[in-house]
């Protein structure tokens, strides 16, 4: 099956950086690219048990005609074919439905806010909702185009962390890039326990083969050890940390990570089906 990535194009300089990121991802991972150029200020995504409305910032709607030219030019430069998504179904006349049958979706940190509001530590509520509800992982991009050469997976042993691990392994295999594992040592999390969990899932061999380094970070605070994460790594993380379940937050460790590092992140939500 061909995997595809959905990109909602924002027609400004910031949007170009985001789009370059999508292009890089598709090129490295062999995904095909679907681009939606918005013609309405909002769209709906129907997931299995939820519906999410995304209200786009006005900058998404500036001049759709040049937007198409921009996309085509950038894709041509990258040597990728681009397939434009034209919504077929409308819930109301100004409210298109965007299908959810993709294997990945690229979002900037926020889609509903002005670009000036976007910064570290802030992920917009809609992007969060998509990440939590979607059957696909969400690629949250850095501020500017930042190619990566390795993959870093944050792994704490939870169900979602395992999904992130499998996804990381799959991505590293596809792109031929090395994979590093990062684990923060806590009371209930250490190398032995995790090894046991991996063994229970019959993944020992794959992990041994696929992982270059396993960094076990020993520190009281997550913040202090994120320096270890390579600057040119694509980080993969599960949307829930160990323990606390809160709909609005990704889990405490994940919140710290996303507020500290500028790398591109692939967020694996609880409903995500790893391809």
């Amino acid at each position: 099956m061909v995997n595809s990535l959905l990109h909602v194009f924002r027609n400004n300089a910031f949007g170009r950086e985001t789009f370059l990121q999508s292009l890089y991802f598709c090129k490295k991972m062999g995904f095909s690219l679907r681009v939606y150029i918005p013609r309405h200020s909002k769209f709906l995504m129907y997931f299995e048990n939820e519906v999410t409305q995304v209200d786009l910032d006005q900058s998404y709607l500036t001049d759709p005609n040049t937007a198409q030219e921009h996309v085509e030019a950038l894709a041509k430069e990258a040597g990728l074919p681009v397939d434009f998504l034209i919504p077929r179904d409308f819930t109301a006349s100004t409210l298109p439905d965007i299908p959810t049958t993709f294997e990945c979706m690229c979002c900037p940190r926020s889609m509903s806010d002005k670009t000036s509001r976007i910064g570290l530590g802030y992920v917009g509520p809609r992007v969060r909702k998509i990440a939590v509800a979607a059957p696909f992982p969400v690629l949250v991009t850095s501020m500017c185009y930042k190619p990566w050469n390795s993959i870093a997976v944050f792994f704490g042993g939870s169900t979602n962390a395992f999904k992130a691990l499998s996804l990381g392994l799959a991505l590293s295999k596809r792109a031929g890039m090395p994979l590093d594992l990062f684990t923060l040592e806590e009371n209930s999390v250490n190398r032995e326990i995790l090894d046991k969990l991996i063994f229970e899932r019959e993944m020992t061999e794959t992990v041994e083969k696929g992982v270059r380094n396993w960094h076990v970070l020993k520190s009281d605070k997550m913040e202090n050890c994120l320096y270890e994460v390579p600057s040119d790594a694509l980080t993969v993380l599960g949307a829930y940390g160990h323990g606390v379940i809160r709909e609005a937050l990704f889990g405490s460790n994940m919140e710290i990570i996303q507020s500290q590092i500028v790398n591109n992140m692939v967020i694996v939500g609880p409903k995500c089906r790893v391809f």
Partner: peptide
């Protein structure tokens, strides 16, 4: 930021195409 219209067509659309998902 709702879509236009009085809602009943939207409701019927949701029932017939989207498994009754409403915002």
């Amino acid at each position: 930021r709702e879509g236009a219209g009085h809602g009943v067509p939207e409701l019927i659309y949701s029932v017939s195409r989207r498994g009754g998902l409403l915002r």
